[in-house]
Design a protein around this nucleic acid. Structure first.
Lengths: 334, 334
DNA sequence: CTGTTAGCGCTTTCAA
DNA sequence: TTGAAAGCGCTAACAG
């Protein structure tokens, strides 16, 4: 079903059919209706490839995410999809599995697909050759969750958020607070959150214990269990993300510590599922859907302007501490 | 950066450049290397739209899912993405929010994007005009999770799975077993699982109590709490999906029932997160990633053959009962 | 083994 | 307001 067939059937030129769809004002109402009717009868759907080839714009946004197994990014993608659809854009998501080489491959794939712009969550903007490649090709892009002075970013202030949480825990009487994180080297988010932890501990006048670093998610239980069985074990755990928080709660229970009575646990991300758990997860909630939505809006605005985004366009979204039930006063604190 | 530029720079024709990429054997190693080098220097990336327009194949698969907020589908999408990439296909996912009209819109969008084939999870294959549209356009498709005699499907036998679970619960001494489900009308999966429940109860010689139907996920806690506070309350709950099971466990605890001591809860789906919960979720685990992978393989095989899939190509994947910790003997059962 | 060329379906001047 | 025609970048005959 091509525009040719519609034109022939309607007894007009292909140019008129094209105008009827794209510039309705430039054809008489009568012709427009005729064309629309014929097109509907024939089940005509414009060919996106031909249009893209001709206009050099695909109306597709590329999306690079670490994984969909973490609901944080699934939620964000949902937000991206909804916002993109609202703006008349389709999306093409690719996951990188937190691997730099996969990030590169993903961007190459997207560039080959003629995407108009790219939204990405990278391991670390500082060390990312991927971003250079994008900039070099003149492809507009925006980073989500990442924060970096040299790139346009949409995210929250993870450092401040964690520092606040430490202060909050101190207020609840906690003196032994530890942080659980994934591999620091693998993510700038983890690094920033850890900075916030250090700052918060410093401001509270506590000496920070060694970071409980979990190299692989599978190893989480063991590592955390060990940390919780030490002599002067922490009474509160600040986790770098909700998935780690959930695993920490399990590890605590297996070790005979009830949450929040014997151990407070705070997560980071605000995945929807956290509210349905028992105890409901106390967490620093990021506006995941809104991060996606804002990224799309920034990007499509830039596309409309015909110029890439600059670091100055970055948006810092507010986070909120979601109270939950996994966080309470320190044992024996009045 | 077009093939023209590469050809000129390399001093060969565009046809040779094209061959160097697509039919390497039909070109002398020397020319091929020359072309590859020049292409790399110029940062040439083949234009997918032009290729699609010319070949009439986009190497993109459309994917229609209800939502990404349910990890089941996020996991499946991950599987789809990996398998598609392995076969040289990109994907274009769209979510329908369990709404029929959105399913239709999604398919229309995908058809306009020239997708070669579509993988979809629909509310109900029997009542879906969407599938007819696809068949009419000659677009190969395969249903995931759905099961229907008139369409090619990839999924598990939900009915048998639930019937088995009921038998298993009976063996553990449970006499009062209830089922929790989302709106039956909204999903053929829910219907099939409920059928399995009825069959299982019948085979065990129990009279099935009324289905605990949760119209909106938000309402889950209330509805379930009410059911658990009745005089002859169930000692075991079979939930139509893991998300409902998680909410049920919470509702039970809020109502003073400990899981699994006072109430056993079994889910359906096998989301990865279930294993990290406390108690770990007992559930009927579907091979979500494999469902995605199999769907892709079926579809790409059909694409290679140049013919759509038929109902006879359907694949039934095995499910397993994941033991977990949320399911135990009935109270007072020796 | 390599080159020439038509044409995929569409948008967009330029003319009428 | 409408039509004719060029050309986006690529692949696949066909010719050499």
């Amino acid at each position: 079903m091509s525009i040719q067939k519609v034109a022939r059937r309607a007894g007009v030129s292909v140019a008129t059919v094209s105008r009827a769809f794209n510039l309705p004002d430039k054809v008489t109402p009568a012709t427009r209706e005729l064309v629309e009717r014929v097109a509907r009868e024939l089940g005509y759907v414009p060919n996106a490839s031909a249009r893209t080839l001709r206009t050099q714009r695909s109306r597709v946004l590329g999306v690079v995410l670490p994984t969909l197994m973490n609901p944080t990014f699934a939620e964000c993608l949902q937000g991206i999809a909804a916002a993109a659809a609202a703006q008349g854009y389709a999306i093409m998501p690719v996951t990188s599995g937190y691997r730099i080489d996969e990030e590169e491959r993903a961007v190459a794939l997207l560039q080959g697909s003629n995407v108009d712009g790219v939204i990405l969550v990278v391991a670390n903007p500082s060390t990312s050759a991927t971003l250079q490649r994008l900039a070099q090709a003149g492809t507009p892009y925006v980073l989500a969750y990442n924060r970096h002075a040299a790139h346009p970013c949409v995210g929250v202030d993870g450092e401040a958020a964690v520092a606040d949480v430490v202060a909050r825990l101190a207020l609840l009487g906690h003196r032994h607070i530890a942080m659980v994180s994934g591999t620091l080297a693998a993510s700038d988010r983890a690094q920033q959150r850890y900075q916030g932890f250090l700052r918060g501990m410093d401001e509270a006048g506590f000496a920070p214990p060694p970071l409980i670093e979990v190299p692989f998610v599978e190893a989480a239980s063991d590592v955390i269990a060990r940390a919780l069985s030490e002599h002067r074990r922490p009474t509160a755990l600040v986790c770098s993300n909700d998935l780690l928080a959930i695993r920490s709660i399990r590890a605590a229970h297996l070790g005979g510590l009830s949450v929040p009575q014997a151990l407070s646990v705070v997560g980071f991300d605000g995945i929807a599922l956290g509210e349905d758990l028992m105890p409901a997860l106390s967490t620093i909630a990021q506006p995941n859907i809104d991060i996606g939505k804002t990224s799309v809006e920034l990007l499509t605005a830039a596309l409309a302007q015909g110029q890439p985004l600059s670091p100055g366009d970055s948006v810092l979204l507010p986070h909120v501490f979601r109270v939950g039930e996994s966080c309470a006063q320190a044992p024996g604190f009045a």
